[in-house]
Simulated assay, not measured.
Amino acid sequence: MRTPHDELRAGLREAAEAYEPDRARILARVERGMAAGPEEKHTRRRATRPPLLAWARVAGATAAVSGILAMGGYALASAVKSDETPADPTVSVSPLPTPSPDATSRAPIQPAPDPSGGNAQDEEPSSTPTPTPTPTPKASNTASAPAAKGTEDGPLWSDGSVDPHSNDFWAQSNVTIKSSEQLTSLTVELRIALTGGVTSAGAWRSAPEGDFELTVAERDDFLVYTWVLKEGHTVQPGEWVFAGQYDHTRGGRDAKDDTYAVTAEAAGQQLAVKGDFAGQDDNDESDEGDS
């Protein structure tokens, strides 16, 4: 593609090539100069000097204008060329952001074009309610145990009592069980009513410690101790004690609201027992009877 600068140069070149000097006029002037005397030559030289200076000025101005035109043409050609230069045919497209999975872990669905000409994105997509997953029930070794009816069930016997070593500031409640058969599962729960400033002070059991998992928590206005036999472990026939220790405000504490519950399995049979603890009135009556 020819730029304006190239066209200007081509025009000047064509004008220079088309120029033809007037030889007859040049020879006539030379002959007149040779025939004239010294004074006439000096006078003619002086007379012709101004036209030469004027011609030099005209030539200089023409050159300056030509230079300005050439520079302007070059600048214009450069601008036109930069405007007409095609961009890089390789188009860089930024990748779409990776959408975060929603609650149903489904990929987002692109809206379909609206046949009526509207914008489908303006319409709220219908959402299908996600069903709330049902939590998997935790396996329990007492899930199918029958409701306890008393302190004795088949080979399993139980009793609840406040340890005689308890004092005015501290107490210990004992759950004693006896079994004539081996137990393949066992859960003992001791519930101490949160009365008289009760706070947990520890727990122990006469069975091997490594065979049980112990949790202590406050629930429904009770301090609850729970011992659960670990899977794969057994409890041999015999008598076993599970004790919960707690602090309380000064003075004797009434244990009439405290309870316990035991579930177990022996020879494939589900067993359950429960009981409570003697209150102060019962203890007082027992002491008077003994006296």
Rank of each mutant, 00 (worst) to 15 (best):
Q110F: 07
T85L: 02
E123R: 11
T85E: 03
P113A: 09
Q121M: 05
E123P: 00
P99V: 00
A75C: 06
V58G: 06
A36D: 11
T90H: 12
R49M: 14
S82Y: 03
T62M: 10
P115W: 08
P89D: 14
V30Q: 08
S116L: 07
G60K: 07
Q110D: 11
A87S: 14
I68F: 09
G72Y: 09
A35C: 02
S105F: 15
A56M: 04
S92T: 12
L96K: 07
P89I: 10
T90L: 15
P113G: 01
L69E: 11
S78W: 04
T90Y: 12
G60T: 09
A35L: 11
T90R: 12
P108N: 05
D88H: 13
R49Q: 13
P99M: 03
G73C: 08
A120K: 11
P125I: 06
P51E: 09
L69A: 13
A112W: 00
T62W: 03
T90N: 11
R46F: 07
A36W: 01
R29D: 11
Q110G: 09
P51V: 10
P101S: 13
A61M: 03
Q121K: 10
P86W: 04
I68R: 04
A70D: 15
S105L: 15
R106Y: 10
P111S: 07
P115A: 04
T98H: 04
L52F: 05
E31V: 03
P115V: 11
A87E: 15
G72N: 13
E124C: 02
I68K: 04
E84C: 12
P51T: 06
T85A: 05
L53C: 02
S82E: 10
T43P: 00
G33E: 05
R32S: 05
T90D: 11
E39L: 06
G73Q: 03
T48F: 01
A63H: 01
G117M: 10
A112I: 15
P86G: 08
A36T: 02
S94C: 04
A79H: 11
P89V: 13
S66M: 12
